[in-house]
Design a protein around this nucleic acid. Structure first.
Lengths: 219, 219
DNA sequence: ATTTGATTCAAACGACTGTTTGAAACAGGC
DNA sequence: GCCTGTTTCAAACAGTCGTTTGAATCAAAT
């Protein structure tokens, strides 16, 4: 088989370096040197650095989001008239993403990249991500509300946000988790990560809402 | 009173710009232009850009961490032989940080900056942050374990990590929360944020641990 | 072999970057 | 006023940056 084509080499290398060091810290020259291609190839194939960033993200995220939505549609079809089970909804959201982490080719680099993107405030990228995630937000938002009928939309949205943070942080720091938590490598497969994250976030979603004026120790 | 001294002006401006755009995307010339100081002043007062970054973070984070540890020591003293209450521990951790958000001077910029730092993978910065957070991690780690006697250290550590993610994401995106969650501005004070975050994370910490091999729908 | 479009190339443009340097200005003590 | 240390200044260094350009090379069809 022929060696990887130029475009793919740029994408793979950019993905790795962006994940390692961040979008702004990695220049096109860093990428082309590592990918052994010509600088102008980036502009030929992608048009700009910004467009390269979007392409790097989209090529992985689209299939993941597609799978998320398909899984959600599936559990919806199977549940019929019964309410959706929260853990199932969360599983549909987390699993496709964390499974990428287990892929030896993409592995830790893409997961970390997604985690990083979620904290990014670059306007162009933010707008792009909102576009990519629009349908997921709508569908999973509705599914979470359906799975949590006793919770107001406002509380559901806040807790969705906390959940997103927990998920992003986990993606971003997958390699640190082993060291930090003292977890041994065998136990650290993505299945157990998904399970743990579901345990934590499902409980969080179901938490009793505290009254607004919370008494606290006054110093 | 005399106008703000050069050093402080640099710190304030850097804080604001770093929070807005990130560390790598903001150059020293961006900072000095906005602060109306001379480029060499940065090197005179701080030595390097990296050192400026550290200084920006440390000047706010140190007092916050100091307050966290003091609050923790206080609730420890008050609880005597009784076990620490989880919500109290979490309050000690979150409140000092989220209260900065309510400060009209520092306000959203520092909170966002801390949120951003927590996802940062720059080696120098990461090492610096580990140093700044070492005592907090040790003390709160122990406190959480004491507050959750039925949970293994491994699970506590995983859940601590999820909690950190939820906290960071909330800090990083405070301004988006209003828009995203549909929360009206009045309800969006830091007290309610802290309360909500405690509700969610406390429940997550207390969640029942699922058995390792979780049956799931196989496609 | 020629034509055509696709792809890659090296050089260049116009900017920007963090760091350094020696001089000038400032501020306080004597 | 002089001395000393502190602080600010403008210029410069040696790079680096994303984008552009016209030419060369490649590849496929005729």
């Amino acid at each position: 088989m022929a060696k990887t084509d130029t475009k793919t080499r740029v994408l793979n290398t950019a993905e790795r370096l962006f994940a390692q060091k961040g979008f702004d810290a990695v220049s096109l020259r860093n990428i082309i040197a590592a990918a052994k291609v010509n600088l102008a190839a980036v502009h030929y194939h992608f048009g700009s650095k910004q467009a390269l960033v979007h392409a790097v993200i989209a090529r992985r995220l689209r299939p993941i989001n597609g799978e998320r939505l398909a899984k959600l549609a599936e559990i919806r079809a199977k549940s019929g008239r019964r309410p959706l089970k929260l853990e199932r909804v969360l599983d549909c959201l987390f699993r496709p993403l964390f499974r990428v982490q287990a892929d030896p080719k993409a592995g830790p680099t893409f997961a970390r990249l997604v985690g990083r993107v979620m904290g990014e405030r670059n306007e162009g990228l933010h707008k792009f991500m909102m576009g990519e995630l629009a349908e997921v937000i709508i569908q999973f938002g509705a599914a979470l509300e359906a799975a949590l009928p006793g919770l107001t939309k406002e509380e559901t949205d806040w807790r969705s946000h906390f959940m997103a943070g927990a998920m992003a942080h986990t993606l971003c720091n997958a390699d640190l988790l082993v060291r930090f938590t003292g977890t041994d490598a065998n136990a650290s497969d993505y299945e157990s990560t998904v399970r743990r994250l579901i345990d934590f976030t499902a409980a969080g979603f179901r938490a009793k809402v505290s009254p607004p004026t919370r008494p606290h120790k006054k110093k």
